[in-house]
Nucleic acid binder design. Structure first.
Lengths: 251, 251
DNA sequence: ATCTGTTATCTGTGATCACACATAGCAGAC
DNA sequence: GTCTGCTATGTGTGATCACAGATAACAGAT
């Protein structure tokens, strides 16, 4: 394989809009986005985990992934080591790398941490969100509800709308580090969440989720941070109960 | 440089104790600890950040570090990319790698997250800790107090005892993932904390810290999780006030 | 003296090679 | 048939090389 140039953007970054006054060109070009191959692979793997297309316990091989993606093993190594650092992947003592198994204890711990962190984000968002951001949350909530009310609801789509709703909310807290940590948590529970959504009759759960979402939206409109936290914690907790009640988790 | 063998432990792992009954050897050898070079470098850098021997804004270079440590650039790359993943280091758009600057906003956000997560750990520890673990926390508290009461207290030593105290507490919560996340947070605030401890007359703060520590210990003995959380949150909050009051943080 | 365009050096990124360890498959002994 | 030891293959890990881009030093023009 020949030496590839590291993909410095698609070239359409400096689109000229023409009717600008002719002071300088500098203000009219968009900032270039640097994307290393490792970043791309990292994003791909992240998406793979978040969307549940990788099952807990599944094994990876660096060379295999590299061949599948079409690069050398090097960018994959870096991406994997990042994901290992955030517990989204793990390396076994035998040096094999896999997506971590989820024990009941680990799931319970993650749920506990999530209530703490995502509750904090929800409470802050109720105080700090702009009206536009609240509107965006409501839009996501509507999309989720619409999917639920369909004759033949698509579990994966509902899942995606649920995720969008949550992250629109967290983004509205304007706390970037907290946001990143929450993303890390979702990366860890992603595999089991989606695995579950794929399999079971989740109708009852969806109903309950919708109730909590409605409470959340009401709390946001009222700028009531305690109510927002409570609604979100209830949502996380009941979703966790649903997973734990079905006996898919080892230990 | 010749090809080095990847340091498979120091060789003293299988120490024979002799008076064992001669059933099998299997039970008498300690499990070997795998330590890749990247792991070692990661540990070293972590220690460097936690102990405050690296100032915010300071620049690294992969080759420079590699030469200093005596390896090739490869293990350093992996260690650095892990630390970047947990926001303990950052790569600038220019591709330079440095220890992140700490703005007032970021510091405030980290303090908020810390109260949430470390408060949770304290509350859980009050419920779940064994008596031995509580004794260990008390031992750390005594060491911290002893350092404070010295004629010529050593700021760095006090800092270390303070850290030991906190982590003994968090370990006692028996929540490994939470523990890891808290470590990540300390990794981020480490540089500024120690930078500060190194510079100022911190006597007033130490007095206040000791008060909160005493409250914490009392709460642990009483198994009062709410009181433990409150004491710890107060500790974090007042330490943060102290840092913010001195005007060392940009923005 | 200040600014601009060029050049030299250095740094991160990716590819490729080399090696130690782990696992699986297989042959031979009991 | 079951177990032991060897071999072959594949894996992660580390070293080394190659290259693109960034920074800084410098020369020339205004």
């Amino acid at each position: 394989m020949e030496h590839k140039t590291p993909s410095t953007g698609d070239g359409d970054a400096g689109e000229v809009r023409g009717e600008e006054p002719a002071v300088t060109l500098d203000a009219r070009v968009g900032r270039i986005v640097r994307q290393t191959l490792a970043d791309q692979v990292y994003g791909d793997l992240k998406e793979l985990l978040l969307s549940g297309r990788a099952a807990p316990g599944e094994r990876f091989t660096l060379r295999g992934l590299a061949a599948a993606i079409g690069t050398s093993a090097m960018p994959v190594r870096e991406a994997v080591s990042r994901l290992v650092a955030e517990n989204a992947l793990e390396v076994l003592p035998n040096r094999a790398v896999r997506v971590p198994l989820m024990s009941r204890a680990r799931f319970a711990e993650l749920r506990l941490i999530r209530t703490s962190l995502e509750g904090l984000a929800a409470a802050t968002a109720a105080r700090e969100a702009t009206d536009d951001e609240i509107a965006e949350v409501i839009r996501c909530e509507r999309a989720f509800a619409a999917e639920r009310d369909k004759k033949k609801p698509d579990g994966a789509a509902a899942m995606r709308h649920n995720k969008d709703l949550h992250f629109a909310l967290y983004r509205a807290a304007h706390l970037p580090t907290l946001m990143g940590m929450i993303e890390g948590l979702w990366l860890q529970i992603g595999p089991v969440l989606n695995l579950d959504f794929r399999a079971g009759p989740e109708r009852v759960r969806q109903g309950e989720a919708h109730l909590h979402h409605a409470q959340l939206v009401a709390a946001l409109k009222a700028r009531d941070s305690d109510a927002a936290r409570d609604a979100l914690v209830a949502d996380i907790w009941s979703a966790g109960d649903f997973i734990l009640s079905r006996d898919v988790l080892p230990d």
